[in-house]
Computed example of a mutant assay.
Amino acid sequence: MTRTTARTSARAAVAALAAAALLPACTSAAEIEADQRAEAAAEAPAGDPADEAAEPLAVDTSPEQAGRVSTDAAPDAVALVPADVAEDGRLTVGVAGAGEPPLGFLADDNQTVVGSEVDLASLVAETLGLELEVVNVSWEQWPLALQSGDLEAVFSNVGVNAERLELFDFATYREGVMAFSAARGSDLEISEPADVAGLTVAVGSGTNQERILLDWDAQNVAAGLEPAQPEYFASSGDTLLALQSGRVDTFLGPNPTAVYQESVGDLEVVGTVNAGWPNTTYVAATTLKGTGLVDAVEAGLQHAFDDGSYARTLERWGLAGEAVDAPEVNPAVDS
């Protein structure tokens, strides 16, 4: 696993990032942003408010992350840090860095993990008086890494569900929303299970969105509708290529990523669903159950909520619409 240390500073620097797999290596971030803005302006119908609002998300892709929002230590939160965590002065956090803005992705040095999840973890580490150590993990790795002690917490768009609550503790910080994305110009509209009947749907293995798709498909088949065809890809770049080439009809994935891709013109969002469908769930910081660290994390998040650094961080990454009113430890979920 690649280990990188996330650090804060005070000066904002922004650039735009498109899907790396589709761009020449020599293309600068400024050129990419200019091309995207020109493309979006050329395609948008005059007077269409929705298209006028879909401005590309400005993203800092530097490993230094000069624009990261900062906060200060909160004594009440510091007092809750378990002794074994406080001893080495570090908070070791797993973040999946194989994605793209705004959640977790690799910076320009191709090794430092940055994104909204890292920024939120950074706020918590600061409030707890700890140095943040970010570990780049795959989605499949994080549960075992927490159980083995290689990680102390995970900030990686993890949704709270009944099965995970048996092994892990959670402190919520965003609503869990998934989005169906399709190629530009698609006439798809997806709001209920019947809308995916007969479609080829890209989805991540072992995710809540895969569960939703399979549940919807089972419901459709029971009703005599044509089954959906799940497809799995190794990277977001591969998924994007499959959408644009027509190999798949839609992709069900995290809403933040879909909103970003829509903003830069690569695809469009054709529907959303809560990650806990048919119930409501939340995205949360994840710790091993029973360690007590989750109480410190919740207190740290609450400090960031109170001083405004939480809201500013979500705004920085275009995620203000997924904000929650307050963090909550182990929210009730339906099994």
Rank of each mutant, 00 (worst) to 15 (best):
S138V: 09
L146W: 06
V158Q: 14
L130T: 03
E166Q: 13
F180M: 14
E152K: 06
A171E: 01
L91G: 01
G176Q: 12
E87K: 12
V114I: 15
T92V: 15
L91C: 05
N157Y: 12
W139R: 12
Q141C: 09
E175D: 08
T112F: 09
T92F: 00
V95Q: 08
F168D: 09
P102D: 09
N161E: 13
V81N: 10
V135E: 02
A83I: 01
V134I: 14
L123M: 08
R184H: 02
N157D: 13
V93P: 02
A145S: 14
E126Q: 14
V137S: 02
A162D: 15
P101W: 01
S148T: 15
V137M: 02
L130R: 06
E100S: 14
L128Y: 00
P102C: 07
D84H: 12
A145F: 07
D88N: 14
V160W: 15
G149Q: 09
D108F: 05
R174W: 02
P102W: 01
V85Q: 08
P143N: 07
T112M: 12
V114R: 12
G97E: 14
Q147W: 10
E152W: 00
P82M: 07
V95D: 02
L106E: 03
A171L: 04
V81T: 14
N161I: 09
R90Q: 13
F155C: 13
D169R: 10
V93F: 00
E117A: 13
V154Y: 00
V135H: 12
G115W: 05
A145W: 02
A125D: 06
T172F: 07
S156R: 05
